Amino acid sequence: MIYLLPLLAVVTGFGISLFIKPSSSTGFQLLLSFSGAFLLSVTVFELLPEVYTSGTSGVGVFIMLGLLIQIFLEFLSKGVEHGHMHHGQTGKFPMLLLISLSLHSLLEGFPLNSSEDLLHGVVVHKIPVAAILSTFLLHSKIGKLRVILFLSIFAVMTPLGSWLHANFEILDTYAVYIYAVVIGIFLHVSTTILFEASKNHTFNASKLGVVVLGIILAYLL
């Protein structure tokens, strides 16, 4: 499931991009808000206690490092990770976007071996991101084969991160620090989703409801 579910999330997101318009669909925006709340809650309930009870010093520094890394990655990706979509028709393969999203996905795959709830959080988050990314690529006129290539690389990076962690013992030595970096990444992405969930930074009853639902489900699972 660790390897399969992230792949299915990208396929699902691609399917959503074909049948609805992610930039204007109310249902899609609610899914994005839910994913942000769920991912933030799982990070707080699962990952944060794990790294802070490990007895390892300097964890806070690496959390902030992860946040800074994500800010830099979003400079390259223009914020696709938290729902931004910019239609472009340049016909050029978006290599910087691929590098940014691939590194983000690779890092988020590392802690998935330790938490099934975190796996669910990443999958829920990846579906709307994949939908937004697919919509952008389909409008960019880079060709269907390049779109498939891009999405395929993006899809395998999270399972690759999990596989690397499971098969290279040396990574266990630095696991807490890697987890802390991932926490910083998740905190930035999820809180940005929540702050930008509505125009003028206001919540309506529906979005408030799905945010509360995301928090409750993350706590109960």
Rank of each mutant, 00 (worst) to 15 (best):
H120R: 15
L106Y: 01
Y3I: 15
I185W: 09
Y52W: 02
S54Y: 00
G88K: 11
G91A: 04
I215S: 02
L194T: 03
E46K: 04
Y52I: 08
I148R: 09
G214E: 01
F195Q: 05
A197V: 10
G214C: 03
T191M: 03
L208P: 01
I216G: 13
F168Y: 02
L7A: 11
S23L: 03
F136K: 14
F19H: 09
Y177H: 12
G91D: 07
A205Y: 04
G161W: 02
V181T: 12
G121E: 07
F203R: 12
G214M: 02
S100M: 14
S198C: 03
G161N: 04
L96Q: 08
W163I: 13
S102M: 05
P128V: 14
L112F: 06
E196L: 09
V122S: 12
L73Y: 00
K199Q: 08
L67M: 07
L73C: 10
I69Q: 14
V210A: 01
I183F: 14
H87Y: 12
V211S: 00
A205N: 05
Y177T: 11
F110R: 08
V11T: 06
S114D: 14
L119N: 10
P22E: 03
G58V: 10
F75E: 03
H139E: 15
E50G: 06
M1W: 10
K207H: 02
G121T: 01
Y179V: 12
S114C: 10
L164Y: 00
G60M: 01
L18P: 05
E196I: 07
L118S: 09
I148W: 01
T173R: 07
G83K: 06
H87K: 15
L151A: 00
T53L: 12
L145E: 15
G88E: 13
I16T: 02
G143K: 03
L40F: 03
V129D: 10
S24Y: 01
Y177L: 04
G121D: 01
